[in-house]
Amino acid sequence: MSSVESISMRPKEFRSGKPPRSSHPGGLLVLLSMELRKLKGSSFWWMALGMIALVSAWSGLAFMKRAESVNPATRTVALAQGEIFQTVGLLAPILAALLTSRLAVMESSERMDLKWRSLGQSATGRFLAKLVVAGCVISLCFVIPLACIPLAASAQGFHLDGSLAVYILIPALIACFSSKAVTAIQLVLSLTIDRQAIGLGLGVIAGLIGTGLGPMNMPGLGWLFPAGISSAASPFLSSASPDGFASMTLVANPWPKVLTSLLVCFIWSGISAFIIKVKESGR
């Protein structure tokens, strides 16, 4: 067979200058495995561990401060956990901006984006793999203290209304979905904007707005952007006790909030993936 015939029989992707389509089975699992191998031995994991340790240490110190109180009105599991839950809206956008910025820098500095395209891996698939990795890290920053604080508070004799399993599960799920939605948007910003400081600045602004919706009695507006999901779906009801101290209780039926936060997480993740796909198509 002549070289001309060989060239004419090549796939259209080669003749048009486009990367070949991936022939690797597994789809997202393959990309996720490749992403984890790429991050092996990198500073990304040190940054992730630092974030988890920082939030956990702050949560532990805040709980120790509350455990010193002798007032029964302030020694409740809901109040101890609610303080930690309120940090999700503020810290998640900032931590996600830092972590996704690191992923974007590694992708461009090591020319990994060119390598993946040469292997036929789509930008959308690579985005989803990064979202799984970064989203899990940011979620763990809050899920770990939200799951540990009720256990520690119960062991310290804090008052508990209802099931301990519900107190652990509900806030942790909402924090997880909120963190993943925030990570999706911050990852898009990091991958599409060259100046990483812009994404960090937007993360700080989003965190301030998201945590301010509750005090302004407008938590419902939080459904409109990822950083506000934790405020809109907060499972805690705040009130003041007769002696003037703040008190918190878990809402009677928190599962609609959990399911709504899951739906909103899917929506924002889908919007983010669509933006990446459009950018890829425009190349």
Rank of each mutant, 00 (worst) to 15 (best):
V166T: 11
V264F: 05
I185H: 02
L263K: 04
G203D: 02
N253S: 08
Q156R: 02
A53T: 13
P219R: 00
A172Q: 04
P242W: 15
F44A: 12
K277G: 00
L103G: 10
L213G: 05
C265Q: 06
I138D: 04
M34K: 09
L200A: 09
A129D: 13
G228Q: 01
K65D: 12
A227D: 07
L164W: 02
T74E: 13
C176T: 10
G222W: 00
G50N: 04
G282T: 12
A165K: 08
S179E: 00
T211S: 06
A96P: 11
K130W: 14
P256Y: 03
L189E: 07
G157M: 06
A252N: 03
L36M: 15
L140M: 14
A197P: 04
P219K: 02
D194S: 14
Q186L: 13
S239N: 07
M106A: 13
I7E: 05
E110L: 08
G89W: 14
V4F: 13
D161M: 03
I198E: 01
D161Q: 06
A134F: 10
A129V: 07
G120K: 10
L99N: 10
G135R: 06
L90Q: 12
V30L: 15
M47H: 06
A252Q: 05
M218C: 06
L61H: 05
I271A: 06
S238G: 01
S2L: 10
G199L: 06
E280Q: 15
K12M: 06
F14M: 12
M112H: 03
Q121W: 12
I271L: 09
T249H: 03
R111T: 01
K279H: 09
E35L: 07
L151R: 01
S230C: 06
Q186I: 04
L262F: 11
S139V: 01
T74A: 04
